[in-house]
Design a binder for these strands. Structure first.
Length: 430
RNA sequence: GUGGCCAUAGCUCAGUUGGUUAGAGCACCUGGUUGUGAUCCAGGGGGUCGGGGGUUCGAGUCCCCUUGGCCACCCCA
């Protein structure tokens, strides 16, 4: 029996599930396109070595990989970024700049499934390449916020948490962390919430900070600074020059999304390749894992053999996003396509008209359904129409032979005798 | 990969100290009430109790293994 089950961490998408998945993909596409991104896609498997470039050999155990008949190592894509970098690197000189691409791939990772994490999932990626500076960073952040709003989320539901590699680096140096221990300090920042306070203090001391500075470090990385109020950050860190963050701050305000954003120096993103702005979207209470994450990674394309191209981008997975929408009561009941009209036979003569009419309507682009039941029980047939969420029901009795039938608006309950030939127009007008 | 909890119908569950052909509600399917999304009536499909092995005269129930789910760690591109 176990072999007949779907593999661990995968999902079977039944009609309602599939409709919901498409609803989300549609939102991702809609928002991407109106923010000026173009859709791209690549193969669902790549050479295994491609994934080692960015993440090292250790990544292999997290991949579903296999060999082809020639013994070449291949892997199902666990992320889209290497493919993107490869595609950009291959045509770097021919592509008009800036490059603004998005993709909504399904990805597979051989990890143990748990809340918010499955082995196959969909992930929205958008990247803006060939443009330096805070405008590009802010535009990516705006695109994410646009999507959140599109799905009905509000600033009270989720937080866009932003940090900056360079800024944090400056602060750490000022606190007395030597250059060679910076990576360890970033790691400590990342793990702060999982550690006991004593362990945190001890680890911080080992980084070379005086006790008084350890305390400041702790405060600094736990505190959240509202967007538009960088003075607080200046006071707390003792650093007056926050050039990078200042520009970003101004852009976020210009985009009108300051309400959604806050600076959180604890946002690290475990990646060596982020070079500037980093950000994550979290559910407001912080209960779930990140809904989205991204940042600037100016060396990425170069890493994959292309020219040096500045880049900023993000990814958002479907799993945590769905959890948050359910949690906030924003998951629509049913987003399946609705029939325009449901044909109901009230009499045998009416039944004769159903098939030809359905065929005619469908060829004209109308979503038309009818019952396969033999019953002439109008109540039951109307219930079927309602279950199918049809907008209209057309009830055909003996009058159908003279081209007339009763059209019922399923939402208002109104019904009227119409000429069947006018049906399409009446449906289109409502 | 490590550890904890869990597993009976599509869903929510019942099933006595181990004891006949494993049940209910809802959902689903068919038909009836000559009927307009309701109510009611009649009928129906569906479970090798996640899978395998063991103990026993007898296992949904006890033991072991395994698969899957949830949770925490590792990781998080």
């Amino acid at each position: 029996m176990s072999k007949l089950q779907a593999p661990r961490g995968t999902r079977d998408l039944y009609p309602k599930d599939c409709a919901w998945r498409n609803f989300m993909l549609d939102a991702w596409r809609r928002v991407s396109i109106r923010n000026g991104f173009e859709e791209v896609d690549g193969p669902i498997f790549e050479h295994l070595d491609l994934y080692k470039i960015k993440s090292g050999d250790g990544i292999v155990s997290e991949l579903f990989h296999f060999e082809d008949r020639g013994g070449r190592g291949l892997a199902i894509r666990p992320e889209f970024t290497p493919t993107l970098a490869r595609m950009v690197a291959a045509k770097a000189n021919a592509l008009p700049r800036p490059i603004k691409w998005f993709c909504v791939p399904n990805l597979c990772r051989a990890e143990r499934p748990q809340r918010g994490r499955l082995r196959e999932f969909w992930q929205w990626n958008a990247d803006l390449m060939g443009l330096e500076g805070a405008t590009a960073d802010a535009e990516c952040i705006f695109t994410v916020v646009d999507l959140l709003q599109e799905l009905g989320l509000e600033p009270s539901h989720v937080r866009m948490k932003i940090s900056h590699r360079q800024t944090v680096r400056d602060i750490l140096l000022k606190l007395g962390v030597p250059e060679e221990k910076l990576l360890g300090a970033f790691d400590l920042l990342d793990r702060r919430d999982k550690m006991e306070p004593e362990a945190f203090t001890e680890a911080a001391s080992k980084l070379g900070m005086e006790p008084e500075r350890v305390e400041r470090f702790e405060q600094m990385c736990r505190f959240k600074y509202p967007c538009g109020e960088l003075d607080q950050l200046r006071e707390q860190t003792g650093i007056s020059d926050l050039a990078d963050l200042e520009q970003l701050d101004a852009q976020l305000q210009a985009f009108g999304i300051a309400d959604w954003c806050e600076y959180d120096l604890g946002i690290v993103r475990g990646l060596a390749y982020y070079t500037g702005t980093v950000f994550e979207v979290h559910e407001a209470s912080g209960a779930l894992r990140a809904m989205a994450g991204g940042g600037r990674y100016d060396q990425l394309v170069e890493l994959f053999g292309g020219p040096s191209i500045p880049a900023v981008g993000f990814g958002m997975g479907d799993v945590v996003l769905s959890e948050v929408l359910i949690d906030k009561g924003l998951m629509p009941e049913d987003v399946s396509p609705r029939p325009d009209v449901y044909l109901i036979a009230k009499s045998d003569a009416g039944a004769q008209a159903v098939t030809p009419l359905a065929a005619k309507l469908r060829l004209a682009g109308v979503h038309a359904r009818y019952s396969y039941k033999a019953t002439r029980n109008v109540g039951k047939l109307l219930k079927d129409a309602a279950t199918a969420r049809s907008r209209f029901a057309l009830m055909l009795d003996d009058d159908a032979t003279t081209g007339k039938a009763e059209l019922k608006n399923m939402e208002t309950g109104d019904q009227q005798m119409i000429n069947i030939k006018d049906l399409q127009t009446l449906i289109a007008e409502s």
